[in-house]
Design a protein around this nucleic acid. Sequence first.
DNA 1: TGCTTTTATTGACTTTTGTCAACGTCATTG
DNA 2: CAATGACGTTGACAAAAGTCAATAAAAGCA
Lengths: 202, 202
Amino acid sequence: MHESLKSSLAGKIKLSDEQWTFVFSLFKPKTTKRNELLLEKGKVSQYLLFVVKGCLRVFLIDDNGNESTRFLIFEGRFGTAFPSFTLRQPSAAAIQSIEASEILMISYHDYQTLLDIVPGWERMTRIGLEMDYIDSIVRIESLISMDAKQRYNILMEKNPKLIQRLPNKIVADYLGISQETLSRLKSSTQVRKSASPEDGKR
Amino acid sequence: MHESLKSSLAGKIKLSDEQWTFVFSLFKPKTTKRNELLLEKGKVSQYLLFVVKGCLRVFLIDDNGNESTRFLIFEGRFGTAFPSFTLRQPSAAAIQSIEASEILMISYHDYQTLLDIVPGWERMTRIGLEMDYIDSIVRIESLISMDAKQRYNILMEKNPKLIQRLPNKIVADYLGISQETLSRLKSSTQVRKSASPEDGKR
DNA sequence: TGCTTTTATTGACTTTTGTCAACGTCATTG
DNA sequence: CAATGACGTTGACAAAAGTCAATAAAAGCA
């Protein structure tokens, strides 16, 4: 299970066998059921998570029960309720495993240890943060400058797997739109399946 | 002018006089006029900018001429077209100084030098990135889970200076809404100035 | 200062998206 | 295999926000 972590990091940091062993010792494995809650809203996120298999979502839920998906975390990626984990504050968001998943968890304390004592870990983290930050900037741009249809088309282009793999409900609140709107977008965008390659008459 | 940079960083990193001198040597001062363009869309952002005085905005402009403000950078803060600067790619966004400003500029190359040779610089950068990333996550949340009025109220609460200081036009496209909608929000939110403290009758 | 240009407000109307409700489909399971 | 429940689609309507246009106000500039 730790092999997945190693292959994910291998291109980004060079460690000795002893160092890998040490790193692995801090990441605790866990398996989750479908829909299992990993972090409740209001609690401090104590762990950074690495997804070996499956998929997690970090989401908000307002007073009316409306959910908004802040992030999705797929295989080979790290994630947590980042503001809570970083600032040691109660989380506005909850974390749930959408599918039965295998994950590795490292505590805040142990993560600081890695930053302090593993040469190159801080650099790797800095570069990883840059990439995550860029992703979030791109997402902000799409939210402030595009309508729902454009956002959907771009997601379709850049990440069709996400759309195929996840229930509509979750894709919709990731895009910041209602489920019904997404459903309508899909049917209006869709190439008509029934039309034959050559067209009727000939 | 470099003193402003020093006081901004002083709490975050400890450097010797020689190190400060070296850092200062890499940040080149520049003064800008109101509305001066600092980076054109399509060019690679070569500099990280530090605002000593004034205000910059990083903004997108679509084919119809609609502008969206990705970020605002005030006194004492760093900023650039981050994805472009980091990935060395043509920028989707442009940078403009909203007010006549004094800034310090450091090139990509020199910034990498600081990361490589100044002890503690990478850590400071990593922590700064965490904070910027958190800000962007909070902004994403507000965009996917709130309507225009809620977003405006929160901005009003958290950053009233921004609303007072900047033209409506820019506040509006920072919020991802039209100028007219912002104008209506303002007048509907506003406490009626004409109403007397006690009410009419009595 | 007075003139010009930009910015802000308001009204009327359109478009987009949300909400509520009904219904269909599919998978699960008792 | 029928019943249940979750998910997806569709329609009708409501609410939110955008667009266009006219005007007012303010800010910058000569």
